[in-house]
Design a protein around this nucleic acid. Sequence first.
DNA 1: GCCATGGCTAGTA
DNA 2: GCCATGGCTAGTA
Length: 109
Amino acid sequence: MQPFTERVIGVIRGIPAGCVMTYGQVAAAAGSPRAARQVVRILHSSSAKHDLPWHRVVNKNGEIAIREEEGNYTQRLLLEEEGVTFDPAGRIDLSEHAHTPEEDMGFER
DNA sequence: GCCATGGCTAGTA
DNA sequence: GCCATGGCTAGTA
């Protein structure tokens, strides 16, 4: 497993229940601000194997990014169980629920 | 070549 | 709706 992948996994593990991070925020916290797409790939391919709180990562608008067949409803349910609320448009208020890592784990630049 | 982004234009109303 | 981005994996040699 490559260093960046490990860092991304570490960042995602650090998101507490009831909070979310965007793909871009995770990438930035892992030290590579433009690698949001890579975060997507990591979640897509290996979220299950690493026992990640995959449901706590959403897109820039605070929306669940996956489609119905991919588990959109499951993700919403998991978040709601943690106390995350959605507006009528299906968006999360990021100013309320966004997690900003305190230490940035030393990967910020 | 993948990918569950993100930031931008084009084009409709 | 288009396309640059980027770290990685699959698969060939």
